[in-house]
Design a protein around this nucleic acid. Structure first.
Lengths: 114, 114
DNA sequence: TTATCATATAAGCAAATAATTATATATTAA
DNA sequence: TTAATATATAATTATTTGCTTATATGATAA
C-alpha cells in the first residue's frame, strides 16, 4: 500500500473532486489527456468556467499542462503524492467512455481532419 | 472489485469528506463508534456544529445513529453502497489513534468510571 | 503587421457552506 | 413533577464557491 498522506491535504483533494465537473474531468483525464476546447465539448458551461476548474486542479498539483502550439493539453500528474488516492477514487466512478467518444466525434482540434 | 457508483453520488460523498472535520470524524468512526459528546472532546467547535456535521453525514447515509439512553452513538454505515469508496479513501488518511486516546482519556460518558 | 484562435485572468454576483447563538426535544434522575 | 443532561433544530451571518461577462495574453496565419 502507498503511504498515507496528511489528512488536511487529503481533504483538499476530496473537496476539489467533490464537484461533478471536476470529478468528470479527472475521470476523463484518467483515460486520455485533453485540451480546454475538448472539455468545452462535454461540459455545458463557458470557457472561463472550464479554465477555472482546471486551474484549481493544477493549483493542487493534480493535473499538469503541456502547451502544444495554440493548445494546452492537460493530463493527470502521476508524480503527485496524492495520485494514489485519486486512482482509488476513480475505481468507484464510471469510466467516461461516452464523453471521450463525444470529444472525438466533435474533434475540436481537427487533428485528424485528413 | 466493488461496482462503480453513479458519478454524482460519488461527488456528493467526496464533497462531504472534503471537510477536515468530517473527514476526521469518519476516520475516527472507522476505528470506533462515538457519541456526540465524545466528538466534542476532539473538535474545537460548538455542539451544534458537531451535530450539523453528523447530520450531513447521516443525510447521505454514510453514518447511522443508535440511541442508548441519553446518548446517541454514531457509526459508519457499512450497508451504504458508497462504503467501499469511503474505506478506500481512509486507506490514504492517517489513523486517528491520538484522537481516540484523547476521547478515552476525557471519557465524557463516564462509562468506565468504576 | 494585423486578424484570428485558444486559453487565462479579472470582476461581479447569487447560491452554498460552516460557523455561531438561541431554543427545542428527549432522556434520566431527584 | 421538576431539574439536569445530551442532542437536535432554527435563525443568522461571514466566507467560500461556481458561475457569468469582459478583457488580457499568447500562438498562428494572412
Amino acid at each position: 500500500m502507498e503511504s498515507r498522506v496528511d489528512l488536511e491535504k487529503a481533504a483538499g483533494v476530496l473537496k476539489l473532486l467533490g464537484d461533478k465537473t471536476r470529478l468528470t474531468m479527472v475521470a476523463i483525464l484518467k483515460q486520455r489527456e485533453c485540451c480546454v476546447c475538448e472539455f468545452l465539448e462535454v461540459f455545458d458551461m463557458s470557457q472561463p468556467s472550464v479554465s477555472q476548474h482546471l486551474r484549481k486542479l493544477k493549483d493542487l498539483g493534480l493535473v499538469k499542462e503541456d502547451r502544444r502550439g495554440q493548445w494546452i493539453y492537460y493530463s493527470l500528474n502521476q508524480q503527485n503524492e496524492l495520485y494514489g488516492l485519486i486512482e482509488d477514487i476513480l475505481e468507484h466512478v464510471p469510466v467516461q467512455t461516452e464523453k471521450i467518444k463525444q470529444i472525438e466525434k466533435a474533434n475540436p482540434t481537427l487533428q485528424c481532419g485528413c
